[in-house]
Design a protein around this nucleic acid. Structure first.
Length: 256
DNA sequence: ATGGTTGTTGCACAA
């Protein structure tokens, strides 16, 4: 089973590219973030024609997450699981696909360490742990993929001296990721690669992509059984090239 | 050099 996650920074602006990429990569499950669409504008019929069932949790102008699956799609939960304080933003959707409990997440950016949005980000990551506790169990096949807006380690940013004091690298954010790992998740990219400075996001500005200035903030977090089944993981940086790319590259994982 | 770009029921704000 091939699972991929991709922050496409507006599905409307990226539809053609996304379809071409699906045709080339043939994911069984594709998690999308930042669709920037309301639910009634999500092109479910287009994806259905390509062989994918879909679940979308959107709000319009900003945010919006989706799951596409050609291996079944059941038991959809929009937002956090019942009983957890709902997020007014559309940032998480969960479904069971091919026997795996899958979530597509778009973690709040945080903006700056002294911004209220950063407090919201930390709280959101805490609620994500509550969500998996309520929704599933670490001894099951569980996968959360998406834009975590956190670089797990200094080797995941181009120059830690330049990002010090900024969001995405702060200790409280990394501690929240560690809490997810304590629950039972592993950052599956690191099961397969030790290399430093492999990125999934590059700012559009200042030629950052071509200068190699990015961060690895798009993660696939897997429960132990899924991590054991994973046999290959790449970040498809080719998808960041060319005309009108997203500022994120997809992460692809294959499972036995 | 605190620069630059992309997206949106845009004309400011989020990333």
């Amino acid at each position: 089973m091939r699972v991929a996650t991709w922050n496409i920074n507006s599905l409307r602006a990226r539809q053609e590219r996304v379809e071409a990429w699906i045709d080339e990569v043939q994911p069984d499950v594709l998690l999308l973030q930042e669709t920037k669409l309301a639910d009634d504008a999500f092109p479910a019929l287009t994806f259905e024609a390509l062989g994918y069932a879909s679940a979308h949790h959107g709000q319009g102008q900003w945010n919006g997450v989706a799951i596409l699956s050609r291996v079944g799609l059941d038991d959809v939960v929009h937002n956090f699981a019942p009983g957890i304080e709902p997020d007014p933003d559309a940032r998480i959707v969960t479904a069971t696909c091919g026997g795996v409990r899958v979530s597509s997440v778009y973690v709040p950016n945080g903006r700056a360490l002294d911004d209220d949005h950063y407090v919201y980000k930390l709280d959101w990551l805490g609620r994500l742990v509550q969500h998996v506790e309520a929704d599933t169990s670490p001894d099951r096949d569980v996968l959360i993929g998406g834009d975590f807006n956190v670089a797990p380690e200094d080797r995941d940013v181009h120059d830690p001296t330049k990002t010090a004091g900024m969001t995405h690298v702060s200790e409280p954010e990394r501690t929240r990721l560690a809490e997810l790992e304590a629950w039972g998740f592993a950052d599956v990219f690191r099961q397969h690669h030790d290399a430093d400075r492999v990125f999934s996001w590059w700012d559009y500005r200042a030629g950052d992509f071509h200068q190699g200035r990015g961060m690895r903030i798009d993660l696939v977090m897997c429960s132990a059984s899924m991590a054991a089944r994973s046999n290959w993981c790449i970040i498809d940086r080719n998808a960041r090239k060319g005309k009108s790319p997203s500022d994120h590259a997809p992460v692809i994982v294959d499972f036995d």
